[in-house]
Structures are given as structure tokens and as C-alpha cells.
């Protein structure tokens, strides 16, 4: 019944509001500073999540291919107190080229009502979430690229 009511009134896309988190260099960064001119890709990940780690080299490639086209990638790490100490050394050895922010309370993930790791969202210049993708398996990078291309055009 609830779903029917919601469908009947029409739902607006979720919006990413400006947020402030520390990066792995202990500097405070905001979404407003980091977002892309045309599109922003936000990857919610954790060090203990194997599919998350598998996605990172592919996201690095996407970042290098699209950063000149107005697309930025932001990694938001959601490791809790138990494993957060591993975020900086692992990020550096994986040579993550885009900014990695630390959200020890998963506040941003909870705010956006996201439920899985990894979750990747595409955000347009107005801050609206235009695509959500949960999980990462072989072949997903092509799907991500296709969605970026679709929303760039």
C-alpha cells in the first residue's frame, strides 16, 4: 500500500548534500571541492570487502580516462574502528589515484540509504543520484563505463 502511495505521488531522485570528511592524509575535504564538473562517481568501499578491492584497479583506469572529461571519482571508505588503520597503507599500495575519504561511522552511506559494499553511485552536477550499482564482479567495469557515457551525453 505504501509503495503504491509513493509511486502515485512520484519520487524525486535522491540528492547528495555537501559533506565534510577527512582523507587518508588527515586533511578535511568537502564534496563541493571534490565533485566533478559533469559527473561524480562515488565508490563506497571497505578494506575487508574483496569485491571492493577488486574494483579499485578498474576505477583507477576509469578515473584516468575520464578525469579530463569532467568526471571525478571519490572513494568513501567505511571501515569501522577495527580495520580503519589499514585504509591508508592499502590505498597507497593499490595506488588509488582519486581521493579517498574516511567515514568511520558510515554516515554518508546511511544518509543515502545504501545497504551493500561496494556500492557505486553516479551523481550529476545538481547533486542528484542518477545511477546506483551494488557489488562488483568481472565485467562490471564495462557497465560502469556505459553508464558514465550515457550520463555524459
Amino acid at each position: 500500500m505504501l509503495c503504491a502511495i509513493l509511486a502515485s505521488i512520484g519520487l524525486n531522485a535522491q540528492t547528495v548534500k555537501n559533506f565534510e570528511l577527512k582523507d587518508i592524509e588527515n586533511s578535511t575535504r568537502t564534496f563541493a571541492d571534490l565533485k566533478g564538473e559533469k559527473l561524480t562517481v562515488i565508490d563506497f568501499w571497505a578494506t575487508w570487502c574483496k569485491p571492493c578491492n577488486k574494483a579499485i584497479p578498474e576505477l583507477n583506469k576509469i578515473y584516468e580516462s575520464y578525469k579530463e572529461k569532467g568526471v571525478e571519482i571519490i572513494g568513501i571508505n567505511c571501515d569501522g574502528p577495527r580495520s580503519v588503520s589499514k585504509v591508508a597503507p592499502l590505498s597507497k599500495t593499490l595506488q588509488i589515484k582519486y581521493p579517498v575519504l574516511i567515514d568511520i561511522n558510515s554516515d554518508i552511506k546511511n544518509e543515502l540509504n545504501l545497504m551493500a559494499f561496494p556500492t557505486l553511485i553516479l551523481v550529476n552536477p545538481e547533486g542528484k543520484i542518477v545511477w546506483i550499482h551494488e557489488g562488483y564482479v568481472t565485467g562490471d567495469s564495462q557497465i560502469i563505463i556505459a553508464e558514465i557515457e550515457k550520463h555524459l551525453n
Binding site: 569501522g80 574502528p81 580503519v84 568511520i104 561511522n105 558510515s106 554516515d107 546511511n110 545504501l114 545497504m115 551493500a116 559494499f117
Partner: peptide
């Protein structure tokens, strides 16, 4: 709400998604 102080020595709250 969920709130953690520091690395959780004094206070940690959390949600295990799903």
C-alpha cells in the same frame, strides 16, 4: 542515531547492513 567516539574506546554504535 549512530555515533562513535574516536576508535571506539569509549563509545561505538553501528549497523551491520542487511
Amino acid at each position: 542515531f549512530y555515533e562513535t567516539i574516536g576508535r571506539g574506546l569509549l563509545l561505538r554504535s553501528y549497523e551491520i547492513p542487511g
